[in-house]
Design a binder for these strands. Structure first.
Length: 423
RNA sequence: GUGGGUGUAGCUCAGUUUGGUAGAGCCCCUGGUUGUGGCCCAGGACGUCGUGGGUUCAAGUCCCAUCACUCACCCCA
């Protein structure tokens, strides 16, 4: 038997309705906030991610699916979407027509990590990106939009974590202060943190080892080192969030894993999924467009983890079954020939219709109708054909009515309306 | 990449200690009811015991390897 690849998964029919419900909810909401869809390839030149995400990040160092696209060129299955959106914004010169662009995209990402609950090697994200707006209002508006999205999906137990990562003017000062602080604590840090100390000191703040948390208890905080502009921006984001009634926690230890973030960084966390608690995350990346050879344009965006979100939504209420409105039980070849035609006609009218061609006994057909939770069964045998009238059985009330074959489709449509079946 | 747990029927799991010809419940199929589902009763189908090797007269059981799933670390959505 050929099995799927480690870390990949099938999304089966008992989940897909939930997935589409989430996507439909997001699309409707995002459109109301002025977003338009962009669809992008899932492979790009490896260089795009190396330059945007950062050579020293875990993603680029060890998690990317990169292979030869041609003799000269390495290509990569995208590990995230922002880089591609930025690439397109620049390459297609979207800024020339209108610098302010609000874009969303939905699709799979690929990272070669060890799989675990809520983490797959192919996972799905909804991404939203805004180009050309520097105002802190847009930061707050994006978070408000996210919060509203989760409210519409009736997700509870969420928290908003907020931080500011500063900008090229102030972050270096902070990094230096942090480095010298960490140097004084080397003995009390775990071995991972000792390694991070040089490579990426900000990451030490994020360590979950208790002894490390203790050691960095009075470590310098980025927010104390923000330059005047960054501090002003951060304050404005916070007051705008308060204005909209969004609860948030300041989390100085919130560090994003990608190098391109500046200023506002945020994460939406759940308490219901174990270790993989981030279901959305994002932030501002004002330097990235320029870094990738585009014009100087501020930008901000976020990603929602669909796999984790779908798991949360289904924890609340398992997906509703798409049960048939009508199940046709035809007895004998002559009946099958007629009902085949009726079945098509009913389906065309938007009635969920299932017909069984197997030629089994009526008892067996009724069993199947019951199993697939059909609301009604249409029983058609030689007697009914002869009488030009068929039997319609309501599977819940067990009521049976005789329906003339003439005008049957309209009769059934009306009948279903009385059952509150939307046709 | 590192560590723990688990792989036996479509599903949930016994059986492994102490080697001796694979089990239960659910599901599925047929009949009891000539053309009426769920409940009940009777009967039936379904397994290379994750895979490959080894030890043995004999391996689901012991040994080695390997794969997968799962949880956690790392990191992130």
């Amino acid at each position: 038997m050929i099995q799927l690849i480690r870390g990949f998964k099938d999304i089966l029919p008992d989940e897909t309705e939930t997935w589409r419900h989430i996507e439909d909810t997001a699309i409707a909401l995002f459109q109301s906030f002025g977003f338009k869809e962009i669809r992008l390839p899932i492979v790009e030149k490896a260089e795009l991610f190396q330059r945007s995400i950062g050579e020293l990040t875990d993603i680029v160092e060890k998690e990317m699916y990169t292979f030869a696209g041609s003799k000269e060129e390495l290509i990569t299955l995208r590990p995230e979407a922002t880089a591609s959106v930025v690439r397109s914004y620049i390459q297609q010169k979207l800024y020339a027509k209108e610098p302010i662009q609000k874009l969303y995209t939905i699709g799979p990402m690929f990272r070669r990590e060890r799989p675990q609950k809520g983490r797959y090697r192919q996972f799905y994200q909804i991404n939203a990106e805004v180009f050309g707006i520097a105002s802190p209002y847009i930061d707050a508006q994006l978070i408000f939009m996210l919060w509203t999205f989760f409210e519409r999906l009736k997700i509870s137990g969420l928290t908003v974590q907020l931080n500011s990562l500063g900008c090229p003017a102030c972050r270096p000062t902070f990094k230096a202060a942090l480095s010298s602080f960490l140097a004084s604590k080397t003995e009390s840090l775990c071995k991972d943190c000792v390694r991070r100390q040089d490579k990426n000191p900000l990451r030490v703040l994020d360590c979950k080892v208790p002894s490390c948390q203790e050691a960095i208890g009075d470590a310098p905080s980025m927010t104390d080192y923000l330059c005047e502009d960054c501090a002003g921006h951060f304050n404005s984001v916070q007051s705008a969030l308060k204005q909209q009634g969004i609860p948030f926690e300041l989390t100085p230890r919130l560090v994003r894993g990608l190098d391109y973030y500046t200023r506002t960084a945020f994460e939406i966390q759940t308490n219901a999924l174990g270790a993989q608690n981030a279901i959305a995350g994002g932030g501002r990346y004002d330097m990235l467009v320029k870094m990738l050879d585009g014009p100087e344009q501020p930008a901000i965006g976020f990603a929602i983890g669909l796999d984790r979100l779908a798991a949360l939504v289904m924890q609340g209420h398992p997906q509703e079954e798409l049960a048939p409105d009508i199940f046709i039980a035809a007895l004998g070849e002559e009946s099958r020939e007629k009902t085949f035609e009726w079945s098509c006609a009913l389906s065309v009218e938007g009635i969920r219709t299932e017909i069984d061609f197997s030629g089994k006994s009526l008892k067996a057909l009724m069993k199947r109708a019951n199993r697939i939770n059909a609301a009604n069964v249409l029983i058609v045998g030689t007697q009914e054909i002869e009488d030009s009238a068929i039997v319609l059985r309501n599977m819940v009330t067990k009521e049976q009515v005789t329906v003339p074959i003439e005008g049957m489709v309209n009769y059934i449509k009306k009948y279903l309306t009385t059952q509150n079946r939307v046709v």
